[in-house]
Design a protein around this nucleic acid. Structure first.
Length: 425
RNA sequence: GGGCAGUUACCAGAGUGGCCAAAUGGGGCGGACUGUAAAUCCGCUGUCUUUCGACUUCGGUGGUUCGAAUCCACCACUGCCCA
């Protein structure tokens, strides 16, 4: 199956420029995706563009991952209703390093391959270009009328927050990237999220006008939740690919919590499973949705892809301990079980205080489970806190020695899904 | 440089002298129901606090007043229009 057909059945194609498929069938094609260094780690929103590159490489083409050191300084207005904050240079550099190291895990950079992946940073070429050079070499070829017709620009002009010249220029800067890669690396294809379509087309246009050459593009749909909510956000913020920011257990849980309809869409997009296997998984899932076959498979495949087998196993173990017997008494958890739980928030607490007895509110606040006693009280009153799997409603409760599991642990749940393990020593 | 409009909590957006910690909607969190789902219903959503209460908020600073998100002055920022 060729790349385009593959991406198409997976639901990963949104717009495609005519001739792209022919180009890919004709020869090994170099293609790129740009990543914004807005943080020092990528989050799962970047996973789809990464997967585009992986699929591309699997199909025998050459992927380039571009880290936007220069474009990050400008700020992409696409999808933003307001001017973005600018990042300082140190921040940007730190972020670029973080993002690079993550991309390296997903693509094959083995230089002996004809289609070895490459990493570039557009700051490398932009730093040598003066403003005057740029407006003569790039700006001359694109009319303002053309740039204003772009959706990302139009929306901002119609809105009431305006748009700075800097942001307006963004599409031209990104367009120049494509031109530069086309000229210097024979890169003929750009991919990205569908919000990038306008920027990408500016690039192909610039290439056509400056060189007379032809360049191609396609985009993938932006991932949304079926209920319209933002993808990849939880109460704790983004789901990051960095295990230090989002533990593999939390990562696994995120996918496990997908709704049925999302799971069916996402499993095609985020895993490399074949069509027949996916169809049978969906059929099995529909037969008995409560088993959440799709969610489990999705979570498993992705956690392995991002964090590896060992971390996946630990994430599954922790999930097993915390959820599979959620209604059983805590006694079913052995010392070993508790000691080996990974990925949830753990804190230590002084044994002396427990021996003396602590009131529940202070206890919860002192362990940073809540920011203050007031917050803890509200949650308690709402029935949202369990200690050792027993719902606590008594605000006066004292936490004492007999609350310890195996003489050293206290398991706290806030809501159904937030677990905290406190070790008392 | 000139004219006009605006700046309220996470977002949108009411409030034009006391009953305002500030309507309403969205979002978020928690609960019930479930399948760690969806939909629905209920509660919470400025901070701290032994539910009393205290403190800090309506762009900023100063003023009028017993009392200001609300009135006045100046400043800052944003948008639109004119030059």
């Amino acid at each position: 199956m060729n790349l385009i057909k593959e991406l198409n059945w997976r639901g990963m194609l949104q717009d495609i420029m005519p001739g792209t498929e022919d180009q890919l069938n004709k020869e090994m094609t170099t293609a790129y995706v740009g990543f914004d260094p807005t943080a020092d780690s990528l989050h799962i929103g970047s996973l789809v563009p990464i997967l585009l590159l992986v699929h591309l490489q699997k199909a025998g083409h050459k992927p380039i991952a571009l880290v936007g050191g220069a474009t990050g300084m400008v700020g992409d207005p696409s999808g933003k209703s307001e001017e973005r904050n600018m990042l300082s240079e140190e921040e940007l550099n730190k972020n670029i390093i973080g993002v690079r190291s993550q991309l390296e895990k997903f693509l094959n950079f083995d230089a002996s391959l004809p289609n070895a992946a490459e990493l570039t940073n557009n700051y490398d070429w932009f730093k040598g270009i003066s403003f005057l050079d740029f407006i003569r070499d790039a700006g001359k070829h694109i009319t303002v009328n053309y740039m204003m017709a772009k959706d990302s620009v139009k929306k901002r002009l119609e809105g009431d927050s305006g748009m700075s010249f800097t942001e307006f220029t963004y599409q031209l800067v990104q367009g120049y990237d494509f031109y530069w890669l086309y000229k210097n690396k024979n890169c003929k294809l750009q991919m990205g999220g569908s919000d990038q379509w306008g920027n990408i087309v500016t690039g192909t246009e610039l290439i056509r006008r400056k060189t007379g050459g032809e360049a191609f593009a396609f985009t993938c749909p932006l991932i949304k939740k079926a209920d319209g909510g933002k993808f990849g956000k939880t109460e704790k913020g983004n789901i990051w690919l960095d295990a230090n920011k989002t533990t593999p257990y939390q990562f696994y849980q995120f996918w496990l919590n997908a709704s049925d309809s999302d799971a069916a869409t996402w499993i095609k997009i985020f895993t490399f499973l074949q069509e027949t296997e996916i169809n049978s998984l969906i059929a099995n899932h529909d037969a008995n949705p409560a088993d959440r076959i799709l969610q489990k498979k999705l979570a498993e495949e992705l956690t392995r892809f991002v964090h590896g087998d060992a971390e996946l196993e630990k994430a599954k173990e922790t999930t097993e301990k915390l959820f599979s017997n959620a209604k059983a008494s805590v006694d079913s958890l052995s010392v070993e079980d508790l000691e080996s739980i990974e990925g949830i928030v753990k804190t230590n607490y002084s044994a002396d205080k427990i021996n003396a007895g602590v009131d529940i509110l202070s206890f919860l606040a002192e362990n940073s489970i809540f920011e203050s006693k007031g917050a803890a009280r509200k949650m308690l009153q709402n029935g949202g806190v369990s200690i050792n799997r027993e719902k606590i409603t008594d605000l006066q409760m004292m936490v004492e020695k007999n609350n310890l599991l195996h003489n050293k642990f206290i398991l706290i749940q806030v809501g159904k899904k937030n677990n905290f393990l406190i070790t008392v020593a």
